[in-house]
Design a protein around this nucleic acid. Sequence first.
DNA 1: TCTGGGGTCCTAGGACCC
DNA 2: TCTGGGGTCCTAGGACCC
Length: 429
Amino acid sequence: MMQNLFVLVDCNNFYVSCERVFEPRLQTRPVVVVSGVGGCALARSNEAKKLGIMMSQPYFEWEQVAVKNNIKVLTPNFSLYADMSNRVMRSLTEFSEKRQVYSIDECFLDITYSYTEGNLFDFGSKIKQKIQKEVGIPVSVGISITKTLAKATNEYAKVHIDCDDVAVAIHKDEIDDLLHKTTIEDVWGIGRQTATKLHISGIHTAHDFANQNGETIQKTYGGGFYDTWLELRGTQSTRDISELRSPKRSIMHTRTYGEALYLFDDLLSCVASHASECGRRLRARKLIASFVTVFIKTNRFVDRDRRYTGEITVGMQEPSSDTKEISKTAIRALRMIFKKGYIYKKVGLILSGLIPESEQQLSVIGHQSDKRGENIRLMKAVDMLNDTYGHGTIRLALEGMNSKRDHYQPSHLRSLRFTTRWDEIKQVK
DNA sequence: TCTGGGGTCCTAGGACCC
DNA sequence: TCTGGGGTCCTAGGACCC
């Protein structure tokens, strides 16, 4: 039987690396990209990691460290990252036709059939060099016989400096060694909760886990973990790994607000602006939605008796991408979950039951479908104007005009959109 | 004072059917 | 006086990922 071969290419400290491509002065300085002003750490340069800043750690906990060590703190520039990601992924097509873009900074290549001869380590190095040269982003490469093992191999390459960011684990002894050196929480698919349970059972490494009884794993931890168990043992699981993954299942927009929201009307304008944003993304993908989920949450760090989460999913009258319909449904949902007396911090909206626009049922005849045609033209006009003149130029009256809750992205900490905006292109003096 | 946002999948339990 | 069992679908919530 032929052995499968998977490559995982993972960009190192991706957001930070993108920033450094366009601002070489940041090359030697510790850099952290945070989720927003006063937010959590999303990406850290190696220097910042060494200073002890943890992933997702809130800014106020490391503010002192940042000041003392002259850390450059940036808010994210997602249009830049998305564009850089596309460049990386495009460069990778040369190495395999079977490619799965797993996230903005990770890509699996299935080279089972395309890879014929030569040293796999050299193959990995070639990938690394090409991406560095063409895009300027440093990557790590892990190669093994299942995707879960390729993930672990990649992690190994990142941690062990002598690997030079490339590692291969194909033969039994190599895989055994890898499993011994991989702690259980570093296994792909095993998070904090499960890791805690496993530690209690005396399972501390990937090797311990792989040597459990499969049936016990399935019974105790569930089917998802059985897949992980199989993959660590070198058997490809049934998890779908093809490029042709199912299309998007949901679209969501959520926000944590700086100020306290306690009136129904406060939440109403949040929900309305989420509806607009979700509608815009929906239309950009030429989809219509069947269900709207609304949730409202109080501060999760507050005492239990002051905490509340309301969440409900409501069907649309008919699937649609019309912001007004989405908003109407969302407000109906909000009425069902709103409780007076709580201080809300987070409001979100999720659209699901997504269907291609082209499959819309023409359910109603007469004036209603005329009206629908009118609405579709209206939404197109709104999207066009907002694309041209900026988000929020045209919005629903409910979203409010002068609200502090406007979708204001503080841009003074954000780098320029070098690759997607002519007026922000990098200038050479 | 301060603690992100956008996703997917699995499971348990209830409703309902035959 | 007794009160099956299997299957499916839906929902809420949890766990995990980046």
